[in-house]
Design a protein around this nucleic acid. Structure first.
Lengths: 203, 203
DNA sequence: GCGTTAATTCAACACTTGTTGAATAAGGAG
DNA sequence: CTCCTTATTCAACAAGTGTTGAATTAACGC
């Protein structure tokens, strides 16, 4: 049905090239700092073409920052296994998101944007805290009180965000260059306690 | 010497008004988002006057973001007392920086800027990590190995930055509205372990 | 060939930005 | 008062911004 006539879209994936270029520029300069003209130049394309595909800068940013991982198949990888090693699997998965060449730029862009662009603030809250950590936490309702879960999720998010900020964005030394195993070993117990352990008066 | 002639500076502290206005705008919109014109308008002043006093936007930002606390009299408040409660005093002091009306805007501006402005990245690294935490950590050379101290400082900084991000910038719920005592109780043990406890193979 | 549709570019608009230099106002020293 | 210095404003520049609409080019079905 609807046999389409005329030139077909995307013989070469220029649209994908724009997204890729935008990812890098957004990750490097932040939302405000990145310009459509620079993105277009990096993609070898006219700036108008960017608008032709994405309409507005905000929509381009949203397209760029759409989490390139599916929470549905990310969460099982974390929750499955020894409950005592939950924190370790959480930080390990998180770190690999930031160190895989394919997902890293999107995550950096998302994190950078979170502090400049109000939209990205909502976005990171929505994806990062709710989609991921809350799903992980939901698996814990047998072991901890349900009323504590949101706070536990926030605490875990705070440590993970802080880790990403110091290691990948601000590049503190030595935490930026230390092997990942060292970071995992140091941070995992913190997450484990936030998720299942004793926090304050709770438990 | 040099008996000065002519109009004296600042009968009314318009310069201070500019700094105050800039603090709020920078804290609210970030470095790129804040415009000199808006800052001038908020201060009830001509934009050119801002340049007359501060020269450039970057210098204005630096003036605004100069830590409004003296590390010299901040550190003793943290290190003095029971070494087992060091983490608690650290996070308590940190939180009060972000919740005091006088220092809060500067800290928010500093943190927001850290992710957009490369200058602020260095600045926050310099002040926050080195000036404060490393000084605190220096007091620990009797109890932990000196070689571990930089990493320990970074780990503590990561948790504190993540806390500030989630509670004061991104405003995750419920961590943004929960009483400070709850946060302190939850985070203090983490810092205590990062500073003096067992991190990975160390200790 | 034609006609249609999409890909791509050109050129420009309307606006905001940081910044500057000249002009004006105001207050104190002589 | 005059002189000097500072505070403050006015008006404008040059550059960069996101965005738009028309024009051109290329691929496909007929």
């Amino acid at each position: 049905m609807a046999r389409r006539v005329g030139r077909r879209p995307g013989r070469q994936d220029t649209r994908g090239g724009i997204v890729a270029a935008a990812r890098e520029v957004f990750a490097e300069r932040g939302y405000d700092g990145a310009s459509i003209r620079q993105i277009a130049a990096n993609a070898g394309v006219d700036p108008a073409l960017v608008h032709h595909y994405f309409g507005t800068k905000e929509q381009l940013f949203l397209a760029v920052v759409q989490p390139p991982v599916n929470p549905a198949d990310l969460v099982p990888r974390i929750v499955a296994g020894d409950p005592a090693k939950l924190g370790e699997r959480l930080v390990t998965t998180f770190i690999s998101m930031f160190e895989s060449p394919v997902t890293a730029p999107a995550f950096e862009a998302l994190l950078r944007g979170a502090f400049a662009n109000r939209l990205s603030g909502k976005l990171i809250r929505e994806f990062f805290a709710v989609q991921i950590i809350r799903r992980v936490v939901r698996e814990l309702d047998a072991v901890v009180d349900a009323a504590e879960l949101p706070l536990r999720a926030n605490l875990a998010a705070s440590q993970l965000l802080g880790l990403a900020a110091t290691r990948y964005i601000l590049k503190f030394e030595p935490i930026a260059t230390v092997p990942r195993e060292t970071v995992i070993a140091a941070v995992a117990p913190t997450l484990q306690r936030y998720l299942t352990g004793d926090i304050a008066g709770f438990r």
